[in-house]
Design a protein around this nucleic acid. Structure first.
Length: 494
RNA sequence: GGAGCCGUAGUGUAGCUUGGUCUAUCACUAAGCGUUUGGGACGCUUGAACCCCGGUUCAAAUCCGGGCGGCCCCA
């Protein structure tokens, strides 16, 4: 590497490369890269843009999946699995859709040594292959609604620079594809799904979101409209963390998804598609972590509590026995606990290591503590340690985990809210972005104005917030000076 | 879509300008043993590297071409 990561930190051993060697503030992207590698979340693979999810991060994805899966199933969605290969002819059925995805589709052209008659796309998203089947399955209004979801991987061959968890060539996601007899039902569902996503991010990841409608330029290829959840990262860039698209009858017409209604009249169906991806992890990591390493929301931490026994020669046996007893008790209470009784490392080393890995609570147990029937407790997002009676731990720990989650969410929410500034001109928007903020502006919504502005400044539309304050009569668009039709968020985006 | 920088053990690096003395530097790390352990312990021992392909040359980590990969800036 170069100078960028040579920067040493005061208060830290100058020789050690074990911890982070840059701060979040001075070099955000280097900080992120070091963080996710050193905390053993992720590693690079031999293929550019394709990354390895190690157990510590895959666990988080599994938790997200379990949580959201339960929500959508309770709402009536069923899981399924479609093939990852899509014949070229199918992919081309909806015009806007192909046009949107064509530049980044990866193709399979040979099987063994034989050239295929028709090349196969590796799914960049599954609308086309799923709707081909939907057309066969849906005959009558009795077949509706059809609400399927799949958890899978997809491939989009990005040519921009890839970033682990954020922009990848292959990634994990869920994609829901639903079909309704009426527009109202479909539109209602599209909004309901956004609510599920907001809950998931809040309850599990402690990440607050901006919910709203995408501009015409930024909407999904082939959609009538797209709803999105956006998070704000510490470098001032917004990150689209999930989307819920209402497809209207566009795909139904292209794929001939028709049903007979009660009057025996044939109608095209109304559809939605919606998804969140592994990107949610990137959002969470960037939002909470600090210069000591990861800070994991307790609910998704693979290890919630680590016990570090202080093994002095004179009292090793007693301390170790007490630590093992404590470990067994916490485990029995359903807490994900790890006992670090390695004798090859000093306690200080272990403290730093577990902080780097983001473990929410550390318990230190030494001879002095043992005498007093206490342990030292350190919560990851707090500076001070506290001494807790062992007898109180089983109630204290769940409480601490809960309040840590609350603090993380509140801190992120305060930051998000203070980062939105109202603006009424190009210059004000640019100034806001310069300060790592995002701007709420009155806008006319025209794609031409957005394209030109993005070309000039790199600033784009994010979404139009659902809770819209009323626009004062005669408010002008911040770009064109024409009549503004809504408030819209603008900023830099990943 | 354009411009630039870079690629040496697991990590960070020295060496490249001016080819040879490189049997490749230093630190961290890893493994083993011993002494240690309340915020990144210490000693000894042992491991481990020139991105790939081609070219120039008596000789390539070093020069040239291509590829692959990484970083970063602009749009």
């Amino acid at each position: 590497m170069n100078q960028a990561n040579k920067g040493s930190k005061k208060g830290q051993d100058k020789k050690s490369n074990l911890g982070l060697t840059v701060t979040k503030e001075e070099n955000f992207s280097e900080w992120f890269t070091q963080l996710i590698q050193k905390s053993e979340l992720m590693d690079y693979s031999p293929v550019s843009g394709c990354y390895i999810l190690r157990p510590r991060s895959y666990f988080i994805w599994e938790e997200i999946r379990t949580f959201l899966d339960a929500k959508i199933k309770a709402d009536g969605v069923e899981n399924c699995y479609f093939p990852m290969f899509i014949p070229e002819s199918l992919l081309k059925k909806e015009e806007d859709h192909v046009e949107g995805f064509a530049p980044e589709v990866a193709w399979v052209e040979t099987g063994g040594h034989t050239k295929l008659k028709e090349r196969l796309a590796i799914r960049p998203t599954s609308e086309t292959i799923m709707y081909d089947s939907y057309a066969k399955w849906i005959r009558s209004h009795n077949d509706l609604p059809l609400r399927l979801n799949q958890w899978c991987n997809i491939v989009r061959w990005e040519f921009k620079h890839c970033t682990p968890f954020i922009r990848l060539r292959e990634f994990l996601w869920q994609e829901g594809h639903t079909v309704f007899a009426t527009r109202t039902e479909a539109v209602d569902e599209a909004h309901k799904i956004v609510g599920f996503y907001v809950d998931t991010f809040k309850e599990l990841l402690a990440v607050p979101l901006l919910t709203g409608k995408k501009s015409d330029k930024e909407k999904f290829a082939g959609a009538e409209f797209s709803l999105s959840i956006e998070a704000l990262m510490p470098d001032g860039k917004a990150l689209q963390a999930g989307t819920s698209h209402h497809l209207g009858q566009n795909f139904a017409k292209a794929f001939d998804i028709k049903f007979k209604d009660k009057d025996e009249k044939e109608e095209f169906a109304f559809q939605n598609s919606w998804g969140i991806s592994i990107r949610s992890l990137g959002t969470m990591i960037m939002t909470h972590s600090d210069n000591k390493g990861l800070v994991l929301p307790p609910k998704v931490a693979k290890t919630q509590v680590v016990i570090v026994p202080l093994l002095f020669k004179h009292a090793k046996e007693e301390v170790l026995a007490a630590a093992e007893k404590l470990f067994a008790e916490l485990k029995a209470a359903g807490i994900r606990v790890h006992l670090d009784s390695r004798e090859s490392h000093s306690p200080g080393f272990k403290y730093n290591e577990w902080e780097l890995k983001g473990v929410p609570i550390r318990l230190e147990l030494g001879p002095r503590d043992l005498e007093n029937k206490k342990v030292m407790m350190k919560v990851r997002d707090q500076d001070e340690k506290s001494s807790v009676l062992m007898a109180d731990l089983l109630t204290a720990i769940p409480k601490e985990l809960e309040s840590m989650h609350e603090r993380m969410y509140t801190k992120a929410k305060d930051n998000l809210e203070s980062s939105i500034v109202k603006a009424s001109s190009k210059e004000e928007v640019m100034a806001a972005v310069e300060e790592k903020k995002i701007a709420l502006v009155p806008w006319c919504g025209s794609s031409e104005s957005e394209i030109a502005f993005k070309e000039e400044t790199g600033i784009q539309s994010l979404n139009a917030p659902f809770d819209q304050a009323e626009l004062p009569a005669g408010t002008k668009c911040f770009l064109t000076g024409n009549k503004a039709v809504r408030w819209h968020l603008f900023g830099k985006s990943y």
